[in-house]
Amino acid sequence: MSEAHAATGGPARRVPGAGALASELRGGVVAIGNFDGVHRGHQAVVETLSALCGAEATPRLVLTFEPHPRTAFRPQHPVPRLTPAPLKARLFGHLGVDAVVEQRFDMEYASHPAEAFIAETLHRDLGARHLVVGYDFRFGARRQGDVDFLRARGAELGIGVTSIAPFVDEGGNTVSSSRIREDLMNGDVAAAAGLLGYRWTIEGTVSHGAKLGRTLGYPTANMVLPDDGLLAHGIYAVRLRRADGTLHDGVASYGRRPTFDNGAALFETFLFDFSGDLYGEAVSVSLFGFIRGEERFDTAEALVARMDVDAQEARALLAGARPLSALDAAVAF
């Protein structure tokens, strides 16, 4: 992603469905996809969108679907989300997108034929002037619509279509949300960041815990992650952003505290050189590096000794960190 195409403003406007789009946002260029992660491939889509808009004041829109279509079809096996909708809108805002249209995706919507998706969602509701889609984009009931159909029908309605090839990394492998999920499940947040183009970030509200960390000399800001299966349990070097924009380095433990209670998974962040109260505050935490896996210690003293080493390693890692991109600079620096 080039520096020129990263914005520094607030989040993109969130629109609850194509039918709710404001009149001033109609007639824009629309990128269509799930965009979970807003990874380097998705950022390339936004680059194409921006190029098509040029210097004109053309609305830059992203059409995505909530919940993830795979979750709608198989609710018993929901897709672990890399970027929930609020964070996705914030990332797209940094990339210069004006609005993210969050189209409700349920079985009734999935039953609409491909023709209806084009005529109603894209033409009638969005007033789309041009579309940007992946080369293998499929849509409509039973995935009957493809890019050729979209291009032919769109031409009749005055809608242009640009399809783009998969985005590959430096090793020639396609960048995908599934690869990033696999990296996170293995604790390899550095590899995930390489595919994302920024440090993977979580958002949440700081909650009260058992306050075990306080008794050990390591008071923590606690968060519950929405999906316990997405990130490997372990110790991470992190940077926390408060609601006022201030940044604080720290070390985080994600897991079930096997030395004590082996309870529900909790993300616990100890901030270096910080003594304030974060309870009830909405924060974001960016993960910079994996230090070690979760362990059980025989004594609390042994755990504290290891936590001292973890904190030193996290400080060293964070001291040498540099932005991976303009988006990373906006999110984690």
Rank of each mutant, 00 (worst) to 15 (best):
F272L: 09
D36N: 04
T215G: 03
L63C: 09
P16Y: 07
H233N: 13
V175H: 07
A191Q: 14
A128G: 11
F270K: 02
A243E: 15
F267S: 04
R138Y: 03
V251L: 07
V62E: 07
L131G: 10
M107Y: 02
R306C: 11
N186K: 15
V30L: 04
V100E: 08
E3G: 12
P226A: 14
A252F: 02
G145E: 03
Y135D: 12
R292I: 03
F297W: 01
A141Y: 06
L216Y: 08
A321N: 05
L287Y: 14
A329R: 15
R26E: 09
V45H: 13
H208F: 07
T71S: 14
L324K: 05
M223G: 10
L240D: 00
L126N: 03
G213C: 05
N34S: 11
A116N: 10
R241D: 05
A326C: 04
R60S: 08
T162F: 08
L25S: 01
H208T: 11
A237G: 09
A319L: 07
R40P: 04
R143H: 01
V133D: 06
L63Y: 09
P258K: 00
G154T: 05
I291V: 15
A22M: 11
A114G: 14
D249K: 12
L61C: 11
A314V: 01
G93H: 03
A20Y: 03
C53G: 15
V206M: 05
N173S: 13
E120W: 13
F290H: 14
G250Y: 10
P166C: 03
L87R: 15
F149Y: 13
V283I: 12
L87W: 10
R239T: 13
